[in-house]
Amino acid sequence: MNFCKILILMIATIGLPSAAAEQFGKPVDNTNRLKISTIMAAPDNYLDQPITIEGTVVGVCAKRGCWMTIASDKRFENLQIKVNDGDMVFPMTAKGSKAIATGKLNKIQLNLDRTKALLAHRAQQAGNEFDENTVTEPMAIYQLVPTGVEILE
């Protein structure tokens, strides 16, 4: 009898959440949302401050759930949200849902070779022709490192 009580108490203490939880990390800051197009027009201006974005999830890391791509309000533009493996695990079923994310914008400066490789990959994904000789300057990419993400229905 005592053993049963202990077991019930342990199971109740574990309190696993339901798989339907759509809040990741800390609560998002809903007070100061910025358009992705505004941020991407001058990303360097937003590097040192927490920002909140909103948009439709159009891509999710299939294997680790470690990144999501959020569509911008501007056509063909998007911003990637990236976390360290396991910090947050975004579900693939979030594709097409609205997401709000608060975090800091991270700038990753690429060298020329990596720039060419990235642009070649993007061209391939978009089904466009690509000539690497047209790329002469290295570029930087920007990712949002979130402290909190909310995926809405």
Binding site: T56, F76, K95, Q125, A126, N128
Partner: peptide, 28 residues
């Protein structure tokens, strides 16, 4: 349908409520 998105001028994506999605690739 849950949402749609133009990934590029030749790629249009449709996301469904059941979690599936569809890509129209005009180039191919």
């Amino acid at each position: 349908v849950k949402a749609s998105y133009w990934a590029s001028p030749t790629q249009f994506k449709v996301f469904f409520k059941n979690g599936d999605n569809l890509l129209l690739n005009l180039k191919d």
